[in-house]
Amino acid sequence: MAGIEAQAPAGLSAPRVVRPAVPWCQRAVARTVFYHLAVGVTCFFMLYPILWLVGSSFKPPDEIWTNQTAIIPNEFYPQNYPNGWAGFGGISFTTFYRNSLFYATLGTILSVSASSVVAYGFARVRFRGRRIWFAVMLVTLMLPTQVQIIPQYIVFKQLGWLNTFYPLLLPRIGGSAFFIFMIIQFIRSIPVDLDEAAMIDGASKFGIFLRVILPQLTPAIITAAIFSFYWTWDEFLVPLIYLNSPELYLVSLALRTFSDPSGQTDWGAIFAMSALSLLPVFVIFISFQRYLVEGISTTGLKG
């Protein structure tokens, strides 16, 4: 790890480009080679689980357990994919993907936008009871869902919302405590001078939020969106309890519905569908992550 520690600050080398390049040249090349070598090898270990999963998803049924450690199957068996995609009794993964994409997208938008608004309230507006409500919000994170499930089920039953997406989506109108707290921390590292300047110009609190704070929160919001999408995509306990009709099942639920410890299980199909289910999460990550580094930071008091 020492190598990385020493290496780390060099990562922030962008401004150094202005220095005279010649004496640095050779060292820079060596550094680049070392960087890619170290990071590349580590990458293999990080990617191994996924490589193994994808490899196993192409193994025929009698090879899954008999040739377990291999990444590359002896016999290439793509049939696992159509077998898995077929789903259950005519309800295919087309349905599950449609439901999951709907839920994860809408859930993420609700969660992240509500969290930003609430976080701004906590971080920049001073009101009576602020600290107490903030503490209450944190405490809600500390109680396992498992002991809340049954009373919550009865509440939603009274509301007549069983077998719908409402119990999954509506609680998100208040944001999520995790994201609220995260965004608060980001807002608090933004200097107040800009707010005050805007205020003198006559902007309202909401105006400051929209025009001053929000643009500077892009990295935080992107991060929250990536997490929220993945967590929503992967969620199973709450969907399991509230979604009864197989037409409403999510990908996460369907994956758990493939196997029976005491009966016959098509492991190839499970591996195939598990590997495939990583794809949307990956796509979201790849397309969002570049906002975390590209372009010049708009932050700061420079101007």
Binding site: F88, R98, N99, L101, F102, T105, L106, I109, N163, T164, F165, Y166, S245, E247, L248, T257, F258, S259, D260, G263, Q264, T265, D266, A269
Partner: peptide, 28 residues
């Protein structure tokens, strides 16, 4: 995406006798 995939939020019951059944198992 949201608009395209928006599934109906609840299913309507038909005018028949409904028997609900629940089991565990594997794909087969």
């Amino acid at each position: 995406i949201v608009v395209l995939v928006l599934p109906s939020l609840s299913l309507t019951a038909q005018d028949m006798t409904e028997v609900r059944i629940s089991w565990w198992g594997s794909q087969n």
